[in-house]
Design a protein around this nucleic acid. Structure first.
Lengths: 232, 232
DNA sequence: TTACCGTCGTCAACGTTGTGTCACTTACTA
DNA sequence: TAGTAAGTGACACAACGTTGACGACGGTAA
Protein backbone atom coordinates (compact mmCIF):
# COMPACT_ATOMS: atom_id res chain seq x y z
CA UNK A 1 0.00 0.00 0.00
CA UNK A 2 3.10 2.18 0.07
CA UNK A 3 2.85 4.36 -3.04
CA UNK A 4 6.02 4.57 -5.10
CA UNK A 5 7.82 7.88 -4.90
CA UNK A 6 7.45 10.15 -7.92
CA UNK A 7 10.57 9.93 -10.05
CA UNK A 8 12.37 13.05 -11.22
CA UNK A 9 14.90 13.40 -14.00
CA UNK A 10 17.25 16.22 -13.06
CA UNK A 11 19.63 17.40 -15.76
CA UNK A 12 22.14 19.89 -14.42
CA UNK A 13 25.79 20.35 -15.27
CA UNK A 14 26.64 22.38 -12.18
CA UNK A 15 27.53 19.50 -9.85
CA UNK A 16 27.12 21.63 -6.78
CA UNK A 17 23.61 22.80 -7.54
CA UNK A 18 22.73 19.37 -8.88
CA UNK A 19 23.63 17.54 -5.69
CA UNK A 20 22.04 20.09 -3.39
CA UNK A 21 18.82 19.93 -5.37
CA UNK A 22 18.89 16.16 -5.57
CA UNK A 23 19.31 15.87 -1.81
CA UNK A 24 16.60 18.41 -1.12
CA UNK A 25 14.10 16.69 -3.35
CA UNK A 26 14.96 13.27 -1.97
CA UNK A 27 14.38 14.59 1.52
CA UNK A 28 10.92 15.54 0.32
CA UNK A 29 10.09 12.06 -0.80
CA UNK A 30 11.01 12.05 -4.45
CA UNK A 31 13.30 9.70 -6.29
CA UNK A 32 15.86 11.73 -8.23
CA UNK A 33 18.12 10.68 -11.07
CA UNK A 34 20.79 13.33 -11.64
CA UNK A 35 22.59 13.55 -14.97
CA UNK A 36 25.40 16.00 -15.68
CA UNK A 37 24.84 16.75 -19.35
CA UNK A 38 22.21 16.71 -22.04
CA UNK A 39 23.20 13.52 -23.78
CA UNK A 40 23.26 11.55 -20.54
CA UNK A 41 19.94 13.07 -19.54
CA UNK A 42 18.27 12.01 -22.74
CA UNK A 43 19.77 8.53 -22.40
CA UNK A 44 18.32 8.27 -18.91
CA UNK A 45 14.93 9.33 -20.21
CA UNK A 46 15.05 6.69 -22.93
CA UNK A 47 16.04 4.07 -20.39
CA UNK A 48 13.62 4.80 -17.53
CA UNK A 49 10.19 6.21 -16.83
CA UNK A 50 9.93 9.61 -15.14
CA UNK A 51 7.09 11.58 -13.62
CA UNK A 52 8.73 14.91 -14.34
CA UNK A 53 11.89 16.32 -15.95
CA UNK A 54 13.91 19.31 -14.76
CA UNK A 55 16.30 20.48 -17.45
CA UNK A 56 19.07 23.00 -17.27
CA UNK A 57 19.30 24.90 -20.56
CA UNK A 58 23.02 25.45 -20.93
CA UNK A 59 24.72 22.08 -20.72
CA UNK A 60 27.64 20.34 -22.42
CA UNK A 61 27.06 17.90 -25.28
CA UNK A 62 23.40 18.70 -25.76
CA UNK A 63 21.55 21.79 -24.56
CA UNK A 64 18.31 21.62 -22.62
CA UNK A 65 16.14 22.82 -25.48
CA UNK A 66 17.32 20.02 -27.70
CA UNK A 67 16.84 17.47 -24.94
CA UNK A 68 13.32 18.81 -24.47
CA UNK A 69 12.54 18.37 -28.17
CA UNK A 70 13.72 14.79 -28.06
CA UNK A 71 11.78 14.10 -24.89
CA UNK A 72 8.63 15.58 -26.37
CA UNK A 73 9.02 13.31 -29.38
CA UNK A 74 9.15 10.30 -27.12
CA UNK A 75 6.52 11.47 -24.64
CA UNK A 76 4.37 14.54 -25.34
CA UNK A 77 2.81 14.43 -21.90
CA UNK A 78 5.52 14.21 -19.29
CA UNK A 79 5.75 17.42 -17.23
CA UNK A 80 8.83 19.42 -18.04
CA UNK A 81 10.49 22.41 -16.37
CA UNK A 82 13.46 24.39 -17.54
CA UNK A 83 15.90 25.65 -14.95
CA UNK A 84 17.99 28.35 -16.52
CA UNK A 85 20.21 31.32 -15.89
CA UNK A 86 19.11 32.67 -19.27
CA UNK A 87 16.50 35.22 -18.35
CA UNK A 88 15.99 36.75 -21.77
CA UNK A 89 12.39 36.86 -22.80
CA UNK A 90 13.13 35.13 -26.08
CA UNK A 91 14.69 32.17 -24.31
CA UNK A 92 11.74 31.87 -21.99
CA UNK A 93 9.27 32.01 -24.85
CA UNK A 94 11.25 29.41 -26.73
CA UNK A 95 11.17 27.18 -23.68
CA UNK A 96 7.42 27.31 -23.55
CA UNK A 97 7.15 26.77 -27.29
CA UNK A 98 9.10 23.55 -26.88
CA UNK A 99 6.34 22.35 -24.62
CA UNK A 100 7.65 23.28 -21.20
CA UNK A 101 5.26 23.55 -18.29
CA UNK A 102 7.38 26.12 -16.53
CA UNK A 103 10.57 28.07 -17.09
CA UNK A 104 12.31 28.77 -13.83
CA UNK A 105 15.08 31.34 -13.81
CA UNK A 106 18.17 30.95 -11.68
CA UNK A 107 18.69 31.66 -8.94
CA UNK A 108 15.49 30.15 -7.62
CA UNK A 109 14.27 29.00 -4.23
CA UNK A 110 14.21 25.24 -3.71
CA UNK A 111 11.03 25.34 -1.71
CA UNK A 112 9.21 27.22 -4.44
CA UNK A 113 10.47 24.70 -6.97
CA UNK A 114 9.19 21.94 -4.72
CA UNK A 115 5.74 23.47 -4.68
CA UNK A 116 5.75 23.92 -8.42
CA UNK A 117 6.60 20.24 -8.80
CA UNK A 118 3.84 19.27 -6.40
CA UNK A 119 1.35 21.42 -8.25
CA UNK A 120 2.08 19.96 -11.66
CA UNK A 121 2.15 16.37 -10.41
CA UNK A 122 -1.14 16.85 -8.64
CA UNK A 123 -2.60 18.06 -11.88
CA UNK A 124 -1.15 15.23 -13.90
CA UNK A 125 -2.32 12.23 -11.95
CA UNK A 126 -3.93 11.06 -8.81
CA UNK A 127 -0.86 9.55 -7.17
CA UNK A 128 -1.07 11.12 -3.76
CA UNK A 129 -4.63 10.26 -2.88
CA UNK A 130 -3.83 6.94 -1.20
CA UNK A 131 -3.91 8.18 2.37
CA UNK A 132 -7.47 9.45 2.38
CA UNK A 133 -9.03 6.45 0.72
CA UNK A 134 -7.57 3.71 2.85
CA UNK A 135 -9.76 0.66 3.44
CA UNK A 136 -9.22 -2.24 5.79
CA UNK A 137 -9.77 -5.98 5.68
CA UNK A 138 -10.42 -7.29 9.15
CA UNK A 139 -11.06 -11.03 9.15
CA UNK A 140 -14.33 -11.54 7.31
CA UNK A 141 -15.13 -7.89 7.62
CA UNK A 142 -14.41 -5.11 5.21
CA UNK A 143 -14.17 -1.62 6.61
CA UNK A 144 -14.44 1.52 4.50
CA UNK A 145 -13.87 4.57 6.73
CA UNK A 146 -14.65 7.01 3.94
CA UNK A 147 -18.20 5.72 3.61
CA UNK A 148 -18.31 4.78 7.28
CA UNK A 149 -19.32 1.29 6.25
CA UNK A 150 -18.53 -2.00 7.91
CA UNK A 151 -19.48 -5.00 5.78
CA UNK A 152 -19.65 -8.66 6.70
CA UNK A 153 -21.38 -11.48 4.79
CA UNK A 154 -23.08 -8.95 2.56
CA UNK A 155 -24.57 -7.12 5.51
CA UNK A 156 -23.72 -3.46 5.75
CA UNK A 157 -23.48 -1.56 9.00
CA UNK A 158 -23.20 2.20 8.79
CA UNK A 159 -21.07 3.59 11.58
CA UNK A 160 -21.53 6.86 13.39
CA UNK A 161 -18.68 9.35 13.03
CA UNK A 162 -17.19 8.54 16.43
CA UNK A 163 -17.54 4.78 15.93
CA UNK A 164 -15.90 5.23 12.57
CA UNK A 165 -12.97 7.26 13.86
CA UNK A 166 -12.33 4.85 16.65
CA UNK A 167 -12.43 1.74 14.48
CA UNK A 168 -10.23 3.47 11.94
CA UNK A 169 -7.65 4.24 14.57
CA UNK A 170 -7.81 0.69 15.91
CA UNK A 171 -7.37 -0.63 12.38
CA UNK A 172 -4.35 1.56 11.81
CA UNK A 173 -2.85 0.07 14.97
CA UNK A 174 -4.07 -3.43 14.05
CA UNK A 175 -2.66 -6.11 16.40
CA UNK A 176 -0.84 -3.39 18.24
CA UNK A 177 -1.67 -1.28 21.26
CA UNK A 178 -3.74 1.80 20.68
CA UNK A 179 -3.04 3.93 23.77
CA UNK A 180 -6.12 5.35 25.47
CA UNK A 181 -4.65 8.78 25.61
CA UNK A 182 -3.83 8.84 21.90
CA UNK A 183 -7.37 7.94 20.88
CA UNK A 184 -8.92 10.35 23.36
CA UNK A 185 -6.75 13.24 22.25
CA UNK A 186 -7.31 12.61 18.58
CA UNK A 187 -10.99 11.74 18.54
CA UNK A 188 -12.38 13.46 21.62
CA UNK A 189 -9.93 16.33 21.76
CA UNK A 190 -8.81 15.76 25.33
CA UNK A 191 -8.24 13.04 27.86
CA UNK A 192 -10.79 13.65 30.60
CA UNK A 193 -12.73 11.32 32.81
CA UNK A 194 -16.01 11.62 30.94
CA UNK A 195 -14.42 11.34 27.53
CA UNK A 196 -12.82 8.16 28.76
CA UNK A 197 -16.20 6.78 29.83
CA UNK A 198 -17.62 7.76 26.47
CA UNK A 199 -14.85 5.95 24.67
CA UNK A 200 -15.55 2.80 26.64
CA UNK A 201 -19.14 2.96 25.48
CA UNK A 202 -17.93 3.13 21.90
CA UNK A 203 -15.59 0.21 22.39
CA UNK A 204 -18.59 -1.79 23.56
CA UNK A 205 -20.53 -0.78 20.44
CA UNK A 206 -17.68 -1.80 18.16
CA UNK A 207 -17.34 -5.15 19.91
CA UNK A 208 -21.01 -5.74 19.24
CA UNK A 209 -20.58 -4.99 15.53
CA UNK A 210 -17.55 -7.25 15.29
CA UNK A 211 -19.15 -10.26 16.98
CA UNK A 212 -19.79 -12.04 13.67
CA UNK A 213 -16.20 -13.14 13.25
CA UNK A 214 -14.62 -14.85 16.24
CA UNK A 215 -11.18 -14.15 14.84
CA UNK A 216 -11.68 -10.49 15.66
CA UNK A 217 -11.39 -9.15 19.15
CA UNK A 218 -10.91 -5.81 20.82
CA UNK A 219 -8.79 -6.54 23.85
CA UNK A 220 -8.34 -4.14 26.72
CA UNK A 221 -4.89 -3.63 28.14
CA UNK A 222 -5.62 -2.46 31.60
CA UNK A 223 -4.66 1.12 32.24
CA UNK A 224 -3.04 1.39 28.85
CA UNK A 225 -5.44 1.13 25.97
CA UNK A 226 -6.98 -1.25 23.47
CA UNK A 227 -5.80 -3.67 20.88
CA UNK A 228 -7.65 -4.90 17.83
CA UNK A 229 -6.53 -8.50 17.55
CA UNK A 230 -6.98 -10.28 14.22
CA UNK A 231 -6.16 -13.99 14.47
CA UNK A 232 -5.25 -15.33 11.05
CA UNK B 1 -16.34 20.77 -34.00
CA UNK B 2 -15.65 24.43 -33.33
CA UNK B 3 -14.25 24.70 -29.83
CA UNK B 4 -15.46 27.63 -27.77
CA UNK B 5 -12.76 30.03 -26.66
CA UNK B 6 -11.23 29.19 -23.31
CA UNK B 7 -12.73 31.44 -20.67
CA UNK B 8 -10.53 33.31 -18.23
CA UNK B 9 -11.49 34.89 -14.95
CA UNK B 10 -9.20 37.85 -14.41
CA UNK B 11 -9.33 39.47 -10.99
CA UNK B 12 -7.28 42.66 -10.91
CA UNK B 13 -7.96 45.91 -9.11
CA UNK B 14 -5.53 47.95 -11.17
CA UNK B 15 -7.86 49.01 -13.96
CA UNK B 16 -5.03 49.91 -16.26
CA UNK B 17 -3.25 46.60 -16.04
CA UNK B 18 -6.56 44.78 -16.03
CA UNK B 19 -7.73 46.28 -19.29
CA UNK B 20 -4.38 45.89 -21.04
CA UNK B 21 -4.22 42.26 -20.04
CA UNK B 22 -7.83 41.63 -20.97
CA UNK B 23 -7.27 43.11 -24.42
CA UNK B 24 -4.06 41.23 -24.95
CA UNK B 25 -5.59 37.89 -23.99
CA UNK B 26 -8.68 38.56 -26.08
CA UNK B 27 -6.44 39.26 -29.07
CA UNK B 28 -5.00 35.82 -28.51
CA UNK B 29 -8.35 34.13 -28.68
CA UNK B 30 -9.47 33.91 -25.10
CA UNK B 31 -12.69 35.09 -23.55
CA UNK B 32 -11.88 37.24 -20.54
CA UNK B 33 -14.12 38.33 -17.69
CA UNK B 34 -12.43 41.11 -15.74
CA UNK B 35 -13.49 41.83 -12.17
CA UNK B 36 -12.07 44.65 -10.11
CA UNK B 37 -12.12 43.14 -6.62
CA UNK B 38 -12.16 39.84 -4.81
CA UNK B 39 -15.81 39.72 -3.93
CA UNK B 40 -16.89 40.43 -7.50
CA UNK B 41 -14.42 37.86 -8.75
CA UNK B 42 -15.80 35.17 -6.51
CA UNK B 43 -19.34 36.09 -7.50
CA UNK B 44 -18.37 35.73 -11.16
CA UNK B 45 -16.88 32.33 -10.46
CA UNK B 46 -20.06 31.18 -8.75
CA UNK B 47 -22.11 32.47 -11.64
CA UNK B 48 -20.13 31.20 -14.61
CA UNK B 49 -17.80 28.43 -15.60
CA UNK B 50 -14.13 29.24 -16.23
CA UNK B 51 -11.20 27.38 -17.71
CA UNK B 52 -8.65 29.27 -15.65
CA UNK B 53 -8.50 31.97 -12.98
CA UNK B 54 -5.91 34.72 -12.70
CA UNK B 55 -6.04 36.35 -9.30
CA UNK B 56 -4.32 39.43 -8.06
CA UNK B 57 -3.39 38.95 -4.41
CA UNK B 58 -3.89 42.43 -2.99
CA UNK B 59 -7.40 43.53 -3.81
CA UNK B 60 -10.17 45.47 -2.09
CA UNK B 61 -13.02 43.63 -0.32
CA UNK B 62 -11.47 40.17 -0.50
CA UNK B 63 -7.84 39.33 -1.12
CA UNK B 64 -6.76 36.84 -3.75
CA UNK B 65 -5.78 34.15 -1.27
CA UNK B 66 -9.24 34.12 0.23
CA UNK B 67 -10.85 34.06 -3.19
CA UNK B 68 -8.61 31.12 -4.09
CA UNK B 69 -9.73 29.20 -1.01
CA UNK B 70 -13.37 29.70 -1.88
CA UNK B 71 -12.75 28.75 -5.49
CA UNK B 72 -10.93 25.59 -4.45
CA UNK B 73 -13.90 24.65 -2.25
CA UNK B 74 -16.21 24.96 -5.19
CA UNK B 75 -13.89 23.44 -7.77
CA UNK B 76 -10.66 21.73 -6.71
CA UNK B 77 -9.51 21.31 -10.30
CA UNK B 78 -9.73 24.62 -12.11
CA UNK B 79 -6.28 26.00 -12.97
CA UNK B 80 -5.37 29.00 -10.87
CA UNK B 81 -2.56 31.54 -11.12
CA UNK B 82 -1.71 34.31 -8.72
CA UNK B 83 -0.48 37.60 -10.15
CA UNK B 84 1.16 39.55 -7.40
CA UNK B 85 3.58 42.30 -6.57
CA UNK B 86 4.26 40.50 -3.30
CA UNK B 87 7.51 38.73 -4.00
CA UNK B 88 8.26 37.46 -0.51
CA UNK B 89 8.97 33.77 -0.42
CA UNK B 90 6.33 33.19 2.26
CA UNK B 91 3.64 34.73 0.10
CA UNK B 92 4.67 32.59 -2.83
CA UNK B 93 4.68 29.43 -0.74
CA UNK B 94 1.30 30.29 0.69
CA UNK B 95 -0.03 30.76 -2.81
CA UNK B 96 1.05 27.29 -3.80
CA UNK B 97 -0.32 25.82 -0.59
CA UNK B 98 -3.71 27.22 -1.44
CA UNK B 99 -3.59 25.12 -4.57
CA UNK B 100 -2.22 27.55 -7.11
CA UNK B 101 -0.64 26.23 -10.28
CA UNK B 102 1.68 29.18 -10.62
CA UNK B 103 2.59 32.34 -8.75
CA UNK B 104 3.62 35.08 -11.12
CA UNK B 105 5.36 38.13 -9.71
CA UNK B 106 4.75 41.59 -11.06
CA UNK B 107 5.98 43.02 -13.24
CA UNK B 108 5.67 40.16 -15.67
CA UNK B 109 5.71 39.83 -19.43
CA UNK B 110 2.31 39.33 -21.06
CA UNK B 111 3.70 36.97 -23.62
CA UNK B 112 5.24 34.74 -20.98
CA UNK B 113 1.93 34.74 -19.12
CA UNK B 114 0.20 33.77 -22.34
CA UNK B 115 2.49 30.80 -22.75
CA UNK B 116 2.01 29.75 -19.17
CA UNK B 117 -1.74 29.81 -19.71
CA UNK B 118 -1.40 27.77 -22.89
CA UNK B 119 0.78 25.23 -21.13
CA UNK B 120 -1.59 24.68 -18.23
CA UNK B 121 -4.68 24.54 -20.44
CA UNK B 122 -3.03 22.00 -22.69
CA UNK B 123 -2.30 19.90 -19.66
CA UNK B 124 -5.81 20.20 -18.39
CA UNK B 125 -7.73 19.67 -21.59
CA UNK B 126 -8.09 15.88 -21.42
CA UNK B 127 -9.72 16.00 -18.02
CA UNK B 128 -11.80 18.93 -19.03
CA UNK B 129 -13.73 17.50 -21.92
CA UNK B 130 -15.46 14.63 -20.17
CA UNK B 131 -17.41 16.94 -17.92
CA UNK B 132 -19.56 18.70 -20.47
CA UNK B 133 -21.32 16.03 -22.45
CA UNK B 134 -21.49 13.22 -19.96
CA UNK B 135 -24.63 11.11 -19.66
CA UNK B 136 -25.34 8.58 -16.97
CA UNK B 137 -26.93 5.16 -16.77
CA UNK B 138 -28.44 4.68 -13.35
CA UNK B 139 -30.14 1.31 -13.03
CA UNK B 140 -33.14 1.38 -15.38
CA UNK B 141 -32.86 5.13 -15.65
CA UNK B 142 -31.00 7.16 -18.19
CA UNK B 143 -29.97 10.64 -17.20
CA UNK B 144 -28.95 13.34 -19.64
CA UNK B 145 -27.84 16.43 -17.70
CA UNK B 146 -27.42 18.53 -20.82
CA UNK B 147 -31.11 18.14 -21.69
CA UNK B 148 -32.05 17.89 -18.02
CA UNK B 149 -33.91 14.70 -18.88
CA UNK B 150 -34.38 11.68 -16.70
CA UNK B 151 -35.83 8.72 -18.58
CA UNK B 152 -37.24 5.45 -17.29
CA UNK B 153 -39.42 2.91 -19.14
CA UNK B 154 -39.93 5.39 -21.95
CA UNK B 155 -41.25 8.03 -19.57
CA UNK B 156 -39.35 11.30 -19.61
CA UNK B 157 -39.08 13.56 -16.60
CA UNK B 158 -37.68 17.02 -17.19
CA UNK B 159 -35.69 18.26 -14.24
CA UNK B 160 -35.45 21.79 -12.94
CA UNK B 161 -31.96 23.35 -13.05
CA UNK B 162 -31.28 22.74 -9.38
CA UNK B 163 -32.63 19.18 -9.49
CA UNK B 164 -30.45 18.60 -12.51
CA UNK B 165 -27.27 19.95 -10.94
CA UNK B 166 -27.79 17.95 -7.81
CA UNK B 167 -28.49 14.67 -9.60
CA UNK B 168 -25.55 15.30 -11.87
CA UNK B 169 -23.23 15.77 -8.93
CA UNK B 170 -24.61 12.68 -7.23
CA UNK B 171 -24.07 10.74 -10.45
CA UNK B 172 -20.50 11.92 -10.75
CA UNK B 173 -19.94 10.61 -7.23
CA UNK B 174 -21.98 7.46 -7.93
CA UNK B 175 -21.71 4.92 -5.09
CA UNK B 176 -19.43 7.30 -3.29
CA UNK B 177 -20.00 9.99 -0.72
CA UNK B 178 -21.00 13.41 -2.00
CA UNK B 179 -20.17 15.72 0.90
CA UNK B 180 -22.93 18.13 1.83
CA UNK B 181 -20.60 21.06 1.83
CA UNK B 182 -19.25 20.32 -1.63
CA UNK B 183 -22.71 20.22 -3.14
CA UNK B 184 -23.85 23.32 -1.30
CA UNK B 185 -20.81 25.34 -2.32
CA UNK B 186 -20.95 24.27 -5.92
CA UNK B 187 -24.69 24.39 -6.54
CA UNK B 188 -25.95 26.93 -4.01
CA UNK B 189 -22.79 29.01 -3.73
CA UNK B 190 -22.42 28.74 0.02
CA UNK B 191 -23.04 26.43 2.91
CA UNK B 192 -25.67 28.13 5.04
CA UNK B 193 -28.50 26.82 7.15
CA UNK B 194 -31.23 27.64 4.66
CA UNK B 195 -29.33 26.39 1.66
CA UNK B 196 -28.96 23.17 3.57
CA UNK B 197 -32.71 22.98 4.14
CA UNK B 198 -33.27 23.71 0.50
CA UNK B 199 -30.94 20.96 -0.54
CA UNK B 200 -32.78 18.47 1.63
CA UNK B 201 -35.97 19.40 -0.14
CA UNK B 202 -34.32 18.68 -3.47
CA UNK B 203 -33.01 15.37 -2.24
CA UNK B 204 -36.59 14.49 -1.39
CA UNK B 205 -37.70 15.44 -4.91
CA UNK B 206 -34.99 13.34 -6.52
CA UNK B 207 -35.86 10.36 -4.34
CA UNK B 208 -39.42 10.67 -5.61
CA UNK B 209 -38.27 10.66 -9.24
CA UNK B 210 -36.03 7.66 -8.65
CA UNK B 211 -38.67 5.52 -6.95
CA UNK B 212 -39.34 3.44 -10.07
CA UNK B 213 -36.20 1.38 -9.69
CA UNK B 214 -35.61 -0.18 -6.30
CA UNK B 215 -31.95 -0.68 -7.13
CA UNK B 216 -31.47 3.07 -6.85
CA UNK B 217 -31.25 4.80 -3.54
CA UNK B 218 -30.06 8.12 -2.22
CA UNK B 219 -28.65 7.32 1.18
CA UNK B 220 -27.86 9.92 3.79
CA UNK B 221 -24.62 9.69 5.73
CA UNK B 222 -25.41 11.60 8.84
CA UNK B 223 -23.51 14.83 9.21
CA UNK B 224 -21.52 14.10 6.12
CA UNK B 225 -23.51 14.04 2.93
CA UNK B 226 -25.36 11.83 0.51
CA UNK B 227 -24.60 8.80 -1.55
CA UNK B 228 -26.32 7.62 -4.70
CA UNK B 229 -26.23 3.85 -4.33
CA UNK B 230 -26.75 1.75 -7.45
CA UNK B 231 -27.08 -1.93 -6.61
CA UNK B 232 -26.13 -4.04 -9.59
C1' DT C 1 -5.98 -14.67 50.67
C1' DT C 2 -8.72 -10.69 51.30
C1' DA C 3 -9.98 -5.95 51.08
C1' DC C 4 -9.75 -2.03 48.47
C1' DC C 5 -9.64 1.30 44.69
C1' DG C 6 -9.14 2.61 40.21
C1' DT C 7 -10.37 0.92 35.59
C1' DC C 8 -13.55 -1.11 32.42
C1' DG C 9 -18.21 -3.16 30.39
C1' DT C 10 -22.88 -2.44 29.62
C1' DC C 11 -27.59 -0.51 29.57
C1' DA C 12 -30.71 3.05 29.40
C1' DA C 13 -32.07 7.82 29.34
C1' DC C 14 -31.43 12.44 27.88
C1' DG C 15 -30.29 16.67 25.23
C1' DT C 16 -28.55 18.25 20.94
C1' DT C 17 -28.12 18.44 16.26
C1' DG C 18 -29.12 16.77 11.62
C1' DT C 19 -32.83 15.18 8.22
C1' DG C 20 -37.37 14.34 5.95
C1' DT C 21 -41.34 16.38 4.59
C1' DC C 22 -45.35 19.41 4.14
C1' DA C 23 -47.21 23.74 3.26
C1' DC C 24 -46.52 28.23 2.05
C1' DT C 25 -44.22 32.42 0.04
C1' DT C 26 -41.52 34.74 -3.32
C1' DA C 27 -39.43 35.45 -7.92
C1' DC C 28 -39.43 34.88 -12.49
C1' DT C 29 -41.30 34.39 -17.02
C1' DA C 30 -44.24 32.47 -20.70
C1' DT D 1 -51.92 36.06 -14.87
C1' DA D 2 -51.12 31.24 -14.54
C1' DG D 3 -47.37 28.23 -14.05
C1' DT D 4 -42.87 26.83 -12.76
C1' DA D 5 -38.84 27.03 -9.85
C1' DA D 6 -36.53 28.20 -5.65
C1' DG D 7 -36.46 29.55 -0.86
C1' DT D 8 -38.51 29.59 3.89
C1' DG D 9 -40.78 28.10 8.17
C1' DA D 10 -42.52 24.68 11.07
C1' DC D 11 -42.66 20.31 12.93
C1' DA D 12 -41.76 15.40 13.68
C1' DC D 13 -38.45 12.21 13.95
C1' DA D 14 -33.95 9.93 13.67
C1' DA D 15 -29.11 9.75 14.71
C1' DC D 16 -25.48 10.88 17.76
C1' DG D 17 -22.87 11.66 21.67
C1' DT D 18 -22.81 12.14 26.60
C1' DT D 19 -23.92 10.97 31.09
C1' DG D 20 -25.33 8.25 35.19
C1' DA D 21 -25.92 3.95 37.40
C1' DC D 22 -24.20 -0.28 38.60
C1' DG D 23 -21.65 -4.24 38.42
C1' DA D 24 -17.36 -6.76 37.02
C1' DC D 25 -12.56 -6.94 36.68
C1' DG D 26 -7.54 -6.15 37.73
C1' DG D 27 -3.68 -4.81 40.42
C1' DT D 28 -1.75 -4.10 44.88
C1' DA D 29 -0.89 -3.88 49.63
C1' DA D 30 -1.99 -5.59 53.99
Amino acid sequence: MEAAKPKILLCEDDTNLGMVLKNYLELNDYEVILERDGRLGLAAFQREKFDICLLDVMMPNMDGFTVAEEIRDINPDVPLFFLSAKTMKDDIIQGYKLGADDYITKPFDSEVLLHKIKAILKRNEETHREEVNAEFDLGNYHFNPRLRELTVNGKVQTLSPKENELLKMLSEYKNDLLPREAALKKIWGSDTYFNGRSMDVYIAKLRKYLREDSKLEIVNIHGNGFRLVVTE
